[in-house]
């Protein structure tokens, strides 16, 4: 597939994620939108890795070019998993304290 298609698909997913972050007040939804954005980036990384691999294959049949891209995705998933645990813990604590997941209550940044 032309790489352009993947680029635009990723941008679209990413933009949807941003719109979600901007329009929703529920902390959990916002968090989910962030995951969505991460996945958009992952998809693009994999697409690029395959693109480079294809280019390298033209000269060398045994090439491993592009592996790092996919490993990057792997590490992003690792980090995302760690992030989700901590993030969800924070949201739970927030809910326990103010009995809401509305980010508008989190306006302490002003002070």
């Amino acid at each position: 597939m032309p790489i352009n298609y993947y680029i635009f698909l990723s941008i679209a997913l990413f933009a949807i994620g941003i719109v979600g972050v901007l329009t929703r007040r529920n902390a959990i939804i916002i968090f989910m939108c962030i995951e969505l954005m991460l996945n958009a980036v992952n998809l693009l990384l994999v697409a690029f890795s395959k693109m480079h691999h294809m280019k390298a294959l033209a000269t060398d049949a045994a090439t491993t070019v592009g592996t790092d891209g996919q490993l990057f995705v792997f590490f992003i998933m690792v980090v995302a998993a760690a992030e989700v645990t901590v993030g969800l813990a924070i949201i739970v604590m927030m809910y326990r304290n103010i009995h809401s997941v509305d980010v508008n209550f989190l306006n302490r940044l002003k002070h």
């Binding site: 395959k50 294809m54 294959l57 996919q70």
Partner: peptide, 23 residues
């Protein structure tokens, strides 16, 4: 990059064996 293609249905770098070796 308009003309560049991403390889579908081929290439074996995404296989567990290759990634695992690299990892």
């Amino acid at each position: 990059m308009k003309q560049q293609l991403a390889m579908t249905n081929g290439g074996n770098i995404g296989l567990i064996k290759n990634l695992g070796k690299e990892l």
